[in-house]
């Protein structure tokens, strides 16, 4: 699915804009990262895409469908939250199967089919046999993978990732970055990642949009950004300036 974001604006207090006329297009199957410091509006933009926050102005078009006023529950976008937001009173299997269980009767798969789908996803995230555990019994990395599987279970039209690695220690983070990228490729879903970590964005994403003060400063492939940073902000934020440390990944 391709997503067209057309001049989206948002202000929470009616005065200062958190997002000002942001336009962006995400191609089918692409992995895009929204990269920026805190307060740059990247999370707000992701929430607007998910439908959890309504934009003041602007339009969102998915393929050829205007989804601006479609509620979050009807968008079928899988979302992985920074806190993972796993349902603490449900087992891992019930967490993953939740999106299938709440489907309209007409579309909802049978109980057996749902169970099979959950097993398949558990195997995909290397957690086969752990479906009976509860979130509190899992490691941070396992919780992140469950959150990922839960988002993928609904065969999402878009995958949205809000700082999904920030709560993990460095070693686990490296592993999971690869596995998230790997899962996205295997499923073939268009994905948008929000992060403040340039190494993470460069490693995972096909293209990176650098955000600052509610606007997109520059967008391009990691190679393009490295070779031709458009503004001094991009250059310094990516650590590309003359005094910057070595940025080998």
């Amino acid at each position: 699915m391709s997503l067209e974001i057309d001049r989206v604006s948002k202000s929470f207090d009616g005065k200062s804009a958190v997002l000002g006329d942001v336009s962006l297009s995400v191609e089918d199957g692409e992995f895009l990262a929204l990269l920026g410091p805190s307060g740059s509006g990247k999370t707000t933009l992701l929430n607007i895409i998910s439908g959890l926050t309504a934009p003041d102005r602007g339009k969102l078009v998915l393929n050829d469908e205007d989804i601006t006023s479609v509620p979050a529950a009807r968008r079928r976008f899988g979302m992985v939250f920074q806190s993972y937001a796993l349902f603490r009173h449900m087992s891992v299997a019930d967490n993953i199967g939740f999106g299938l269980r709440v489907m309209d009767r007409a579309e909802r798969p049978s109980k057996a089919d749902r169970k099979a789908r959950v097993e398949e996803l558990l195997a995909m995230i290397d957690m086969a046999g752990l479906g009976d555990r509860y979130p509190a019994q899992l490691s941070g990395g396992q919780r992140q993978r469950v959150a990922m599987a839960r988002a993928l279970a609904i065969s999402p039209r878009l995958l949205l990732l809000d700082e999904p690695f920030s709560a993990l220690d460095a070693l686990v983070r490296r592993d999971l970055r690869r596995s998230v990228r790997d899962l996205q490729q295997r499923v073939g879903v268009t994905a948008i990642l929000v992060t403040h970590d340039q190494a993470e964005a460069f490693e995972v994403a096909d293209r990176v949009a650098v955000m600052r003060d509610g606007a997109i400063e520059q967008i391009g492939t990691p190679d393009e950004l490295r070779a031709r940073p458009a503004t001094p902000f991009v250059e310094s934020f990516l650590g590309l300036g003359p005094t910057a440390p070595d940025w080998t990944i």
Partner: peptide, 19 residues
């Protein structure tokens, strides 16, 4: 966040409250 997650997974307001 759990409630927001339920919404993105397609739950109606009632389903979100109930489950």
């Amino acid at each position: 966040d759990e409630e927001r997650a339920a919404l993105t997974l397609g739950a109606s307001g009632w389903q979100m409250f109930r489950f």
